[in-house]
Design a protein around this nucleic acid. Structure first.
Lengths: 202, 202
DNA sequence: GGAATGGCATGACATTTGTCATGGTGAATC
DNA sequence: GATTCACCATGACAAATGTCATGCCATTCC
């Protein structure tokens, strides 16, 4: 019998998956939650064999929870279940030593199969993700540039950004200019759009 | 026996719900799809009692499909199932004479109950949605202003927007200025952010 | 040690953006 | 028919934005 824990933000998917997984003879769902914080508390208490974690959740992301699990030396295996095949996510995934990375795109049989395979010691990565690994672009921006871009993404003016980062107006504009040149765009909106599609922000 | 059709973009939720609904004694899922176009073709052929439609789908939205169903005078009832309680969506929902509007936030029992109630002739609206109806703000922008804002949202410059809409530079800037004043903001990025959170774009 | 590199910081300059005053049109109201 | 109103359109002006040349400092690599 494989014991499971499910952390998934969206209520409908959470309840549907819980019930469906429970129907499998060799699987048992110990519990579920809809935010990262209670997920970690529950997992630390219940010590399931496998934790299925969404990335985008309130309070703490699935990757944060994966870190917690690893730092506490639990033998709980981790499967990340998410909507997007983003390189940015994947890099953190590897660092968090996750056992599986599945997209919400596939049917639920795929998830069930993945659970059994992970328990058998395998590591599962979605093929679409691997493909994106090659094509997707790395974030070329420095730490300061990211700070400026994040502020700009909120719609802040040069002056506001300068004040909050304790820089001069000119410096902020120069960072933005450097950002544009690195990203191959010519204004803030284009830069923000590009950063968002690559999930560099937030 | 109530016959169902399910149109849901996200593969995992689609397959999970199909299986779960099929388990109910009085429900039978005739088919499912992951885009609006095949959904409408299937529904027109299979004529289910109830169609459960996601809004955000490729090719045609759930609201488009609802319109099709109504225009063809099918007696298929429609339940819209979506992530957000957005006023913008809801207004189209009312026009499409939809029988139910549920959020993906609730557990699946809620969906099952809604299906039975809708078949009994009731109309179901999620409470959270009704609340948002009061608080949410209407889009105050004119048609031209929306055209300009959409172009601006892509990161286009004033000149590019002017060319694509056959206006002078000054006119485009004036539209943007009017937009800012209506929305109470002071630059394109803020305007675009606000429009996006209110789902006025796309 | 010297050269090259990458991140950080600034101000001068040209361009783009945002504001405002002005005017035209058609539809609704009196 | 006059008046109001909403929408559309433009250009002049001021302010914000984007570009560029320049310099500092720490690290890395001959």
């Amino acid at each position: 019998m494989i014991t499971l824990y499910l952390a998934e933000d969206q209520g409908l998917l959470n309840s549907a998956l819980s019930q469906l997984l429970e129907l499998e003879d060799d699987l048992h769902v110990l519990g579920s939650s809809r935010d990262g914080q209670t997920a970690w508390l529950d997992i630390n208490k219940l010590k399931p064999d496998v934790a299925i974690l969404d990335i985008e959740m309130p309070k703490a992301s699935g990757l944060d929870v994966a870190d917690d699990i690893h730092n506490a030396n639990l033998k709980t295996k981790v499967i990340i279940l998410t909507t997007f095949a983003q390189k940015a996510y994947f890099e953190r995934t590897v660092k968090a030593q996750v056992n599986g990375y599945l997209l919400k795109d596939g049917p639920n049989d795929e998830l069930v199969a993945a659970i059994r395979n992970v328990m058998a010691g395998q590591t599962i990565y979605d093929p679409e993700l691997v493909q994106n690994m090659v094509t997707a672009s790395d974030n070329p921006l420095t730490h300061q540039e990211m700070s400026v871009l994040k502020a700009a993404a909120d719609g802040q003016s040069t002056k506001q950004i300068a004040e909050s980062l304790f820089l001069s107006d000119g410096t902020v504009r120069n960072y933005l200019s450097a950002i544009f040149s690195k990203l191959g765009v010519h204004n803030r909106l284009e830069a923000v759009n590009l950063a968002k599609t690559n999930k560099w922000l937030s």
